[in-house]
Nucleic acid binder design. Structure first.
Lengths: 188, 188
DNA sequence: GTCTATAGATAGATAGAC
DNA sequence: GTCTATCTATCTATAGAC
């Protein structure tokens, strides 16, 4: 049965989401999937192969979550939607694990680069939908801001994280020039 | 000799900086410090205690790095200095490990909260030095932006990371209102 | 092709020697 | 007080049974 592979993959993702990178071990994944650890290595001969597969699944899931509010035109709603995704600690846990793996494994790094490009593309489209001017710099700023909010929030674990994140993203949107406008330069 | 403890601490920090969280093990730290693993546990009976000590040292080091350019008045220079600190991958590796540990261990989390507050204080002072208006939101934005830039850069490993980061931070500074000004609102 | 017993390596912690 | 031999748990990987 080939969907046993799928079962293992889902178990692996769940393990990473809930237990983080350090809890991500073959025995734990196997237990969750209901197979023996030694069986798991039949489908994923090496730990790295398992991580790669999980990474791919996680990345696709994250992109799907972004696509759910793709055409939105209101900055306020868009900011709230992004914050909503970014403040799911399980997501952040997975992506931080990926970032870490990326720092260690070249194969994960190339996957992560594709991911970053895919994110940039989606941010670009969002800015266009909202009527905000697009530039590489703006896109990079938004990406980094959201990543930073997610990471800081995971670490400090504030209770009002989602509200704060939403406000920060919305504030950045408000500062960005609209399409056709020149760069905002406060009067001096 | 009590400074053996210090030796171990430095070895531990170096291990975390170079090998990341997953490479941070008692045997490796002990080897680097030139003591036996079983001896290491004399000074740090448990792994958590070692991590706590390392975390404290790392946090202080990071704050010192920020204090080095505390009074700077030029946004351009400040942005470059921040980018300089944020683009040191060893630093990012350590702080990501801390964030992860924070997600798992309450004692690290409280340390991390203090750290976040100390960072916020320093960003506040920087904004004041540069004559930019201070608000909780602006401070949070800058903090998150820098964290995000560091994490993304560690993950994708671009060659021109420092330049890009510096540009992004400087761009954000340029969008912030100056002291006494009202919130920037592009003409509509 | 599917699965498992087992090896081999490495982790963290402790009881106890000096 | 300083240090180490050693135990137990846990990890990844492989050789081979079905």
């Amino acid at each position: 049965m080939q969907d046993r592979r799928q079962t293992i993959l889902e178990a692996a993702l769940a393990t990473l989401r809930e237990e983080g990178y350090s809890g991500f071990t073959q025995p734990r994944v196997a237990k969750r999937a209901g197979v023996r650890q030694s069986h798991l290595t039949y489908y994923f001969p090496t730990r790295l192969e398992l991580i790669e597969a999980v990474a791919r699944a996680a990345v696709n899931g994250q992109l799907d979550a972004l696509d759910a509010f793709a055409g939105e035109t209101s900055p306020k709603v868009t900011a709230a939607s992004i914050a909503n995704v970014a403040m799911r600690h399980e997501n952040t846990r997975v992506l931080m694990a990926l970032a870490q793996a990326s720092d260690e494994e070249p194969s994960i790094r190339s996957l992560f680069r594709e991911f970053a490009d895919a994110i940039a593309l989606r941010i670009t489209r969002m800015l266009e939908s909202m009527g905000l001017a697009v530039s590489k710099e703006h896109v990079a700023m938004i990406h980094a801001l959201v990543v930073g909010l997610a990471v800081v929030e995971l670490a400090v674990g504030r209770s009002d994280g989602k509200r704060r994140a939403s406000a920060a993203i919305e504030a950045l949107f408000a500062m960005l020039p609209r399409t056709g406008e020149r760069t905002v330069q406060p009067s001096r």
